[in-house]
């Protein structure tokens, strides 16, 4: 258990209603946890607390058995181990070339120039940015490449937990697939825990091991995608949805076809429909 979020609540000064209300969960080693919820459900606030940027009003967060909001705990330690990638991180690239930009984080952590460069090199390799792009200006890269560089900047600090807010937004289908597969690889090869805020139910079904559904600052569900997506009506009432394929299977069922509605992928749906045709 890497992180335990223990009954945290948080209210923004200007609001009366709490944005986060008594939220508890844990983050395991080597897992992909996705957070879904409508705009305003508290997703962004929650991830900022997990990285110590916002301090909960009540409750606390334990990281490897230490209370991170204790006065003796250095939040700086937490921030280098829990990397946060904001939405559209490419807007935050600022150095004159790609390599310097990625070096910034580890240098800031107090590493020597040499050490920082080694980390930057490894991080850029990990996200698949080819060496010929290391010394060009970040502004000359494509959208997908810039996004990878920005993520490498966080990876260079070698976090154990990587939190990303909508990392695939605005990427084309191919770029989307590449980015998400890269996250799976980080989990598998580096034993990282990946926390992914996503609006795409299809991505959630395909990549997540666990899904957290936030509603008005509370956890409505925290379970496997299969179990969460079996609550179609409840999710729709929250302004969310089920994967497109699942939606179709519900419609087939409503039309009288006896299929398992809990299909999320094309492969699963294919088997189910073939059975209707008396095959497979």
């Amino acid at each position: 258990m890497r992180m335990i979020v223990d009954h945290i609540s948080y209210t923004y000064k200007e609001n009366k209603k709490p944005t986060i209300q008594d939220v508890s969960f844990e983050i395991k080693e080597k897992e992909i946890l996705t957070i879904i919820g409508q705009t305003g459900s508290g997703k962004s606030t929650l991830i900022q607390q997990m990285n110590g940027l916002l301090r909960p009003d009540t409750g606390t967060i334990y990281y490897h058995g230490k209370d991170v909001f204790d006065k003796d705990y250095h939040l700086r330690d937490l921030r280098s181990k829990v990397g946060l990638v904001f939405q559209y991180p490419e807007y935050q690239l600022f150095e004159s070339d790609v390599f310097s930009d990625v070096c910034f984080g580890p240098k800031n952590q107090g590493m020597s120039k040499k050490q920082a460069e080694l980390k930057a090199f490894a991080a850029l390799r990990m996200v698949g940015v080819p060496e010929e792009l290391f010394y060009v200006s970040p502004f000359e890269l494509s959208g997908g490449q810039k996004r990878r560089v920005a993520i490498a900047g966080v990876l260079a600090m070698e976090p154990e937990i990587l939190i990303l807010d909508e990392p695939a937004a605005g990427l084309d289908p191919q770029g989307r697939k590449e980015l998400l597969s890269m996250l799976v690889k980080l989990k598998e090869e580096k034993n990282m825990s990946i926390v992914l805020v996503s609006h795409s139910m299809d991505d959630v079904a395909e990549y997540a091991e666990r899904v957290m559904v936030l509603r008005d600052g509370k956890i409505a569900y925290l379970d496997t995608p299969k179990n969460v997506f079996s609550h179609k009506e409840e999710l729709e009432a929250m302004g969310l949805s089920v994967p497109q394929i699942t939606h179709l299977m519900y419609s087939v069922r409503a039309a009288g076809g006896m299929v398992d509605v809990n299909c999320h992928t094309i492969a699963e749906a294919k088997e189910a429909i073939l059975k209707l045709y008396g095959r497979g």
Binding site: D172, G175, Q244, L248, I266, A269, K270, L274
Partner: peptide, 20 residues
């Protein structure tokens, strides 16, 4: 062209390939 078709279209296409 690095693009996709909608999921439903893809499913129908996969089923066609199976002879449906």
């Amino acid at each position: 062209l690095h693009l996709e078709v909608p999921k439903i279209t893809r499913l129908a296409y996969e089923l066609q390939k199976e002879g449906v």
